[in-house]
Design a protein around this nucleic acid. Sequence first.
DNA 1: GCTTGACCCTGTAGCGGCTACAGGGTGTTT
DNA 2: AAACACCCTGTAGCCGCTACAGGGTCAAGC
Lengths: 144, 144
Amino acid sequence: MKIGELAKAAHVEVETVRYYERIGLLPAPARSDNGYRVYAGTHLERLAFIRHCRALDITLADVARLLRFVDDPAAQCAEVNTLIDTQLARVRARLDSLRTLERQLTTLRSQCGTPNRAAHCGILHELEAPALGDACVCHGGHTD
Amino acid sequence: MKIGELAKAAHVEVETVRYYERIGLLPAPARSDNGYRVYAGTHLERLAFIRHCRALDITLADVARLLRFVDDPAAQCAEVNTLIDTQLARVRARLDSLRTLERQLTTLRSQCGTPNRAAHCGILHELEAPALGDACVCHGGHTD
DNA sequence: GCTTGACCCTGTAGCGGCTACAGGGTGTTT
DNA sequence: AAACACCCTGTAGCCGCTACAGGGTCAAGC
């Protein structure tokens, strides 16, 4: 399998495959006489594993950690649980902050009904508010 | 006001202030005899404006656009509304995808009750599944 | 046999939004 | 006079790719 075929099979860009090799996530494959990379089925499996993790927004550093378990089936997998838990906590924290952000932006948006001169624009006015030490509609009572 | 004082007042790193100047968001201030930057109140206002926008996760490119309205109070502010709407749409899209992600990770996490050998770890097993063309618990029936 | 086009190679730079140095100068305090 | 906090410029690093530039290789069609 050449790199283009591998990439297509895994729905990944060719450059991404080379990138994963460069950072050591994907082992360097054999080369044919002309210098082209030649991949085996195990490479596709590993690449699919990586992409599956990435679809779950797991960092490449954590993917590397998970791959160590793939490579060492006899190891205890407690760290795998911890890693998924941490990832879940990260996602939930980000969810919380995005929910807050949504509220803030909605409130901010409601400050401008009909477009106006910038000088009287409710949105710009609110964005400027904390600069003057006032409270703003989007960030509750405090100016941060 | 020296850069350290400005930074402290706006709860920003000194490097960030210099960075904003370098990319043209913050106008270059006057310099004192020793070459130190000397800031006026308007700089603090502008910096607070930028940070307020950043707290709302508005990109620096969009902040630059907003600042143009601050600088030109006679302009029509319709673009401001559009910009906030776009930002809100971005946040909501990200919220959707994070909610999906949370479900997927929760399902994945449930695959491992008690830590085990990696060879029998339900989580690793599920992460490997699509590599073998099987369905995985986290991504529904299809293999992505 | 010569061109076209699709593919492959290496190496490097860019994205955003900072952050962190290195290697220097300045200014106040002890 | 030394210690320390602050300031300066310039550059490189973070993440996870993506996009070149500048080449080589190979099969198909004329």
